[in-house]
């Protein structure tokens, strides 16, 4: 298959996946919440106002018409008004998604930046105490639930030593013109330390162990023997010859991880009060804010699929051995 044909096929697949997910989501919500406006009774809306909202979402129409309406709106990026924020859903969701992505990407980059060299080093010291400890610690953080490590980190650094902020993205109150203005500050960096660290520690195990194991396989290859025979220093063999060739499985794992990053880590966002998309979904469904919940999930899924697609395409470009099938 040609490269061009492969690209078209992958894009079509992605669109198909998104359509299926949107459909599942639509019917899931209609089954779980037959009357989404029921939650509005507590907001003090009377029957007439509720009827108006029902009409706005087309809830009086037959199911198939509702479905088409939903799909049509979704394609145009029109998700209605949030019940609880009283603002267009799309605006809220995009900002939350950006918050989630910056947290996740920072954490993933950190985890791989530490995990890959550390894994290579551990493989070099295989069988030693450092190796065992490294594997143990990596697996330990992989096994500990993040909400718990987060709570412990808050206890130690926030409550005990009180050196790091433990909630939100900025110290309140603050004013910022737009998202970038909010992000490009020391205060933000300071707030991001703990959540990023907790997510990174969780992700650390994968690159660490994959790198270590692949390195062990690479050591058996002939070109390493060759390098040794040339009398190169061990350090050069490790990092220049072996590590480069062991990178592929780690990159694969990195691609998968980034692909799923938009899904975020809901519990970390909850524990650190990080205004991310996962936390927004949780709050939205708790408050029965169905336009927000539906849109958040759909956009999240769209982002996951798009990221997967991009990573796939990038991957085929980077590694010519991967066939376009």
């Amino acid at each position: 298959m040609s490269r061009r044909g492969y690209l078209i096929k992958r894009v079509l697949q992605a669109i198909f996946s998104l359509w299926i997910i949107a459909t599942i989501l639509f019917f899931l919500f209609r089954m779980g919440l037959p009357d989404p406006t029921a939650a509005l009774v507590t907001e003090g809306l009377n029957a007439e106002q509720r009827a108006a909202i029902r009409a706005q979402f087309g809830l009086e129409e037959p199911l198939w018409r509702q479905y088409l309406l939903f799909l049509g709106n979704a394609v145009q990026g029109e998700f209605g008004t949030s019940f609880s924020y009283r603002a267009p859903v799309a605006d809220i969701v995009w900002e939350r998604l950006a918050n989630t992505m910056i947290l996740m990407l920072a954490a993933i980059v950190l985890a791989y930046a530490i995990g890959v060299p550390l894994g290579a080093w551990l493989s070099w010291r295989r069988g030693s105490r450092a190796d065992t400890t490294g594997i143990f610690v990596g697996l330990m953080f992989r096994s500990a639930p993040m909400f718990w490590t987060g709570m412990i980190a808050i206890l130690i650094f926030g409550v005990g030593l009180s050196i790091l902020p433990t909630s939100g993205m900025r110290t309140l109150p603050y004013d910022a013109d737009g998202w970038w203005d909010k992000i490009l500050t020391l205060d933000f960096l300071w707030h991001a330390v703990l959540p990023v660290l907790i997510v990174a520690l969780y992700y650390l195990g994968s690159p660490l162990l994959i790198m270590r194991n692949t390195m062990l396989e690479v050591y058996g290859e002939d070109f390493i023997e060759m390098a040794r025979a040339k009398g190169l220093p061990e350090r050069d063999i490790l990092y220049k010859h072996a590590a480069r060739n062991a990178l592929l499985p780690v990159v694969t794992q990195l691609a998968v991880t980034i692909g799923l990053a938009a899904g975020g880590q809901v519990v970390v966002e909850v524990v650190f009060s990080w205004p991310g998309l996962g936390r927004e979904i949780l709050n939205a469904v708790r408050t029965s804010d169905f336009p927000l919940a539906q849109a958040s999930f759909l956009i999240m899924a769209a982002f996951v699929i798009t990221l997967n697609l991009l990573v796939d395409i990038l991957y085929t470009t980077l590694d010519p051995r991967v066939s376009f099938q």
Binding site: Q13, A14, F16, S17, L18, I20, I21, L28, F29, M31, G32, L33, G259, L260, A262, G263, G264, Q265, V266, V267, L277, G278, I281, L282, V285, R286, A293, S296, F297, M300, A301, V304, I305, N308
Partner: peptide
């Protein structure tokens, strides 16, 4: 396998949340 591909597009945690909260 297309079904599996579709499932890879669904973020796990949020999906579980929605499922439990709705039902």
């Amino acid at each position: 396998m297309r079904t599996v591909d579709v499932m890879y597009g669904i973020p796990f945690e949020p999906f579980a949340l929605i499922l439990v909260l709705l039902f």
